[in-house]
């Protein structure tokens, strides 16, 4: 058969596309449950870490997560945990970064006067620059940072750099060379603080 005839080309393209796409579809279907489970595990671990609840391994994380109360209101889930008489509240956030959505967990204390922790689940920021919001050095600053007038400031632009600052002043250090991502994080975190406050107030 003439390899360059229109008929052969159409038949060949059809068969070859089918032959390559079918295994892909099967692989995607076959692993979709596993992927969903991985995503859920990662999210639960992020909630625990943001709430400053230490764990080792997936099994312990799963059992500890049983102690976290999840309440849903208007499609928003608020996680609360009783930590030796003190309430810790956390919520998943989705916000606009420089290139795409930044998704993570922010945890605050019960009366929303300080942050307890920040975890990033997913982002599309520039690797090595904005991507460093997922670095421990950035995230650790949110461990017990007091809010000032209910707000948190993240130093950006020329102000950024110089490392962690006083945890009592409501200011954390941003990332040098990633001004836009840093500013985006400030907007996201403050909006999130407001949302958690509202949800906490509504549930009382």
């Amino acid at each position: 058969m003439n390899r360059d005839s229109v008929f052969y080309t159409i038949i060949f393209t059809f068969i070859v596309t089918f032959a390559f796409v079918l295994p892909l579809t099967l692989a995607e279907q076959g692993t979709s449950e596993m992927v969903a489970k991985n995503t859920e595990t990662a999210r639960r671990k992020a909630v625990l870490t943001a709430m400053d609840i230490p764990f080792t391994g997936d099994a312990e994380a799963a059992s500890l997560f049983q102690g976290v109360t999840a309440r849903e209101k208007d499609g928003e889930v608020l996680y609360t945990y009783d930590k030796g008489g003190k309430t810790v509240a956390a919520k998943e956030f989705f916000g606009m970064g420089l290139w795409g959505t930044i998704n993570g967990i922010l945890a605050v204390n019960g009366d929303v006067t300080s942050t307890v922790g920040l975890q990033i689940i997913g982002h599309n920021e520039t690797p090595g620059l904005g991507g460093r919001i997922d670095d421990a050095s950035f995230k650790n600053q949110f461990r017990g940072e007091a809010l000032k007038d209910g707000k948190l400031k993240i130093r950006s632009g020329a102000e950024a750099g110089g490392g962690p600052v006083d945890p009592g002043d409501g200011v954390v250090d941003g990332i040098t060379g990633a001004t836009r991502t840093t500013q985006a994080m400030e907007v996201i975190v403050n909006r999130e603080i407001g949302d958690i406050k509202k949800l906490l107030g509504a549930s009382r």
């Binding site: 390899r3 360059d4 052969y8 080309t9 060949f12 393209t13 070859v16 596309t17 390559f20």
Partner: peptide, 12 residues
């Protein structure tokens, strides 16, 4: 592979 769709098939 037919010559005229060669590159498309390669990308596939």
């Amino acid at each position: 592979i037919p010559r005229r769709v060669r590159m498309i098939v390669q990308v596939l």
